[in-house]
Design a protein around this nucleic acid. Structure first.
Lengths: 109, 109
DNA sequence: AAAACATATTGACAAACGTCTATATATATT
DNA sequence: AATATATATAGACGTTTGTCAATATGTTTT
């Protein structure tokens, strides 16, 4: 049982690479197969396969076999979840960790 | 001159660590000094300082000296920028990279 | 059945990362 | 001026990451 920060860090790690960011961007306008994605990168096929595994394992992308190809699809819900955990200042006071385990109350003037 | 994926990857890299995610979360409910942040972690002071440098260098956090302390503040605009570059499927057709350099049109059925 | 095609897996390696101890710097207190 | 407090920097070290070449697996075509 991991805390939410460890859990979310897995998602941010998956996005912390320029190639994977571009893959997510490309999938955001429609599903694509690996060979179609590969055309747009200067990496080898095994490297792309490795990136796709990282994106799938964390739930950002789903894969389905279609004949000899594998079609990849962006998981919108996971993308929204990531946005949701990025709160801005004063935006989510009821979930503020300060209420639990830090002494920020004395800092809030 | 780096492309937008390389640029955004720096931001996601900064968030790709559970301790830094928690720091951002803590700063989202108010500015804090290093010693106040440190209380909530099982890391040494130099390690926290290292994390703060990463968060500041990428623009997610700002630092200002206040006496012998350094106060850290979350940069809301940068957080919003990150959310903005995470587009969901069909959500930003006019900026879709598919219109530029890939052949996804034939894939969109 | 054989060849071609699409993708995944394995193993290796250099680079980057997170952490620590030790030390430096800067400000406040006595 | 000396001491204490708060933060930053330097250097070291084990772990993780991104990449590749080689190979394996599975599917389609000939």
């Amino acid at each position: 049982m991991v805390d939410k920060y460890t859990q979310n860090a897995v998602l941010f790690k998956a996005l912390a690479d320029k190639n994977r960011l571009q893959i997510v961007d490309m999938l955001s306008c429609g599903d694509k197969c690996a060979c179609n994605l590969l055309e747009n990168f200067d990496i080898t096929q095994p490297t792309l396969s490795h990136h796709m595994k990282i994106l799938c394992d964390c739930g950002l992308v789903s894969a389905r076999k279609d004949g000899k190809m594998t079609m990849y699809s962006l998981n919108n819900q996971t993308v929204e979840d990531i946005k949701g955990c990025l709160c801005t200042k004063g935006g989510n006071s009821e979930e503020c960790i300060c209420d639990e385990d830090c002494d920020c109350k004395e800092l809030h003037v």
